[in-house]
Design a protein around this nucleic acid. Structure first.
Length: 549
RNA sequence: GCCCUCGUAGCUCAGCUGGAUAGAGCAGCGGACUUCUAAUCCGCCGGUCGCAGGUUCGAAUCCUGCCGAGGGCGCCA
């Protein structure tokens, strides 16, 4: 039986082991050929299957230093490796401008299957991020109303990012900053009080329908500010939980301010010599740290600006021991990034210890017609509406379909449609089909052999191998998604796996009477491994994987 | 005016630290169920990667400029 190398949490993958073997084989070849060896041997995955499982560009990279033609060097490398073949390599070839391609025996994919089964729910995880504590702050909507559809992208993104960062070993906390202090709270309370008294909200107040609804719920004699804030928080927490978004802490700005954090922070900044007084106000000399203008911290009327509590908050985050702060903000706040980063530096922290992810706007449509999401007016689409209309899984997957760097257009009619345009269905369907194999097998009383006694060499169909090739990618995909803060890369992978699964399911019957028993056993395990892959991927996205549809 | 993000097939989008002939899905056309879920699968059609330079053996990818779309530039939050 081939040795199972990988798959346990943090262990090397089959690919990384092969990569190391190939890498040293190439070094040996270069050494004995007298060709200068580059710092790193790049072994990449060719875009095309026919170019093998690995490809190296060393001949192209070192051509200049060696004073020889790339293809010439490549041919020598290939010849040398042909004479001293690394394990599992079936063929070495020179291609294109001077690439050396390595074709690997399919058996290595069978090792992948064993790795996935052995790892189970831990497949794809690693420990590369161990030792770094990360705080992801996201949503942070004002406690003056329901979470609306515009917040949904950040909510889903932040939660999935946290899951992915954990999967690579980071210690991650998720936090929602509650702006429960300031003029917007007064306006909110005044609006509630007015509606409760049967009057119109003040001109700078909130006019959404929810104000009237909440005012009607409000017991007489309650303080509209206290009651209203609690009502809003409850609503936000409930609806986010429905989406599977649960925070470790809802950090209260008011509590922080009451604890004296503003003064402490201002003191700290003064001690560091980065503030000055001018025109009766107190300023942060943020231009010393890359901002285009200095910023007011305390206004001439004595009130603090919004910036100072934000600085105090981030100072608090560092005080709690986090190494990296990830803030997820909407596109309308991106102008705020330089001053916040300047503040971080002014506090003595590396600018890179704050990372701000800006999520671009989402345009909602119904049948091609734009649906407006506006804040203070009545026609607001809440996150709750959205969840009721398309379901939590569809909300999550839809928002995680593409990079948050890109503006997104979502057609609600398409998302709910029972068609190929609906990727939620496509993926969940793949999982349900795999699960149906177990279900039907149980009904028929079929026995499953232990994996150790199953001969996987019967898995030779391209459909079967494609599933394994896709499964094999997950550790790298998770790694990359974590490093680039890009959950949508996991989504893309899950869709690819679902596609491979549908192909396998279509062409490779498991339980059919014509399927020979040894093939059935091997395919059955393949189906299990694929189901594991789908579940792991969907878990990182926070999307459920129903067993039946 | 300055800053940020984006511009890839008719539509919605992928494209990893630069790699080989730029990929999916939908739409359009044509096929496939005696089988574990046909809400599936296969084939065809479809692209001057916004434009112009530059770097490089090699650019959708990196740099510069321009064009276009969205967002932001307060002692507002």
């Amino acid at each position: 039986m081939p040795q199972t190398h990988a798959g346990t949490h943090g262990g090397p993958t089959v690919r990384s082991i092969m990569r190391n073997e190939l890498s040293s084989a190439i070094r040996n070849a270069l050494g004995s050929l007298g060709v200068p060896t580059p710092e790193t041997i790049e072994l990449e995955r060719p875009a095309r299957r026919e170019h093998g499982a690995f490809s190296t560009n060393v001949a192209l990279v070192s051509a200049k230093a060696a004073g020889r033609a790339p293809r010439d060097i490549a041919a020598d490398i290939a010849a040398h490796l042909d004479a001293n073949p690394p394990p599992q390599v079936s063929r070495v070839e020179v291609a294109g401008p001077g690439f050396v391609n390595f074709h690997i025996c399919d058996e290595w994919l069978h090792d992948v299957l064993r790795s996935v089964v052995a790892a189970g729910g831990l497949w794809g995880r690693s420990s590369t991020g161990a030792g770094t504590r990360v705080l992801v702050e996201y949503v942070s909507a004002n406690p003056t109303g329901p979470v609306h559809a515009g917040h949904a992208r950040g909510a889903v993104y932040g939660d999935s990012l946290a899951r992915i960062l954990r999967a690579v070993g980071h210690e991650v906390d998720e936090e929602f900053y509650v702006n429960d202090r300031g003029v917007q709270m007064q306006a909110f309370a005044a609006s509630l009080a007015a509606r409760a008294a049967g009057e119109e909200p003040p001109s700078d107040g909130y006019r959404g329908d929810y104000i009237a609804e909440w005012a009607a719920e409000m017991p007489s004699g309650s303080d509209p500010l206290t009651w209203g804030e609690a009502r809003a928080l409850l609503d936000q927490q409930e609806v986010l939980a429905e989406l599977g978004v649960v925070f470790d802490d809802w950090f209260s700005e008011r509590r922080m301010v009451n604890s004296g954090a503003i003064d402490t922070t201002l003191q700290d900044l003064r001690t560091r010599g980065v503030v000055f007084d001018s025109d009766g106000a107190t300023w942060l000399r943020s231009t010393d740290f890359g901002d285009d203008k200095d910023r007011v911290l305390v206004k001439s009327d004595g009130d603090v600006t919004y910036l100072l509590p934000d600085i105090a908050y981030h100072r608090d985050k560092f005080a709690r021991g986090y190494d990296l702060l990830v803030d997820v903000w909407g596109a309308d706040h991106h102008g705020y990034v330089p001053r916040m980063r300047a503040a971080i530096e002014a506090l003595g922290h590396a600018p890179s210890s704050l990372e701000v992810v800006i999520t671009q706007l989402v345009r909602l449509e119904r049948g091609g017609q734009e649906v407006r999401i506006s804040k203070r007016w009545g026609d607001l689409i809440t996150l709750r509406d959205l969840i009721e209309e398309i379901g939590p899984d569809a909300v999550r997957l839809t928002y995680l379909l593409q990079s948050v760097d890109s503006p997104q257009t979502v057609d609600l009619d398409v998302v709910v449609s029972e068609s190929n345009e609906n990727p939620v269905h496509y993926i969940q369907m793949a999982n349900a089909r795999l699960r149906s194999i177990d279900r039907v097998a149980a009904e028929r009383g079929l026995e499953r052999a232990p994996l150790g006694s199953v001969d996987l060499s019967v898995l030779v169909d391209q459909r079967e191998l494609e599933v394994l090739r896709t499964l094999e990618l997950l550790p790298e995909v998770v790694e990359l998604a974590a490093r680039e803060r890009a959950p949508h890369k996991v989504t893309t992978w899950v869709r690819d796996l679902a596609s491979a699964v549908h192909g396998f399911y279509h062409d490779c019957p498991v339980l059919h009477p014509d399927t020979p028993e040894p093939v059935r056993q091997a395919r059955w395990w393949l189906a299990s491994a694929a189901a594991t892959g789908l579940q792991v991927g969907l878990e990182l996205l926070g999307v459920t994987a129903p067993e039946q549809m």
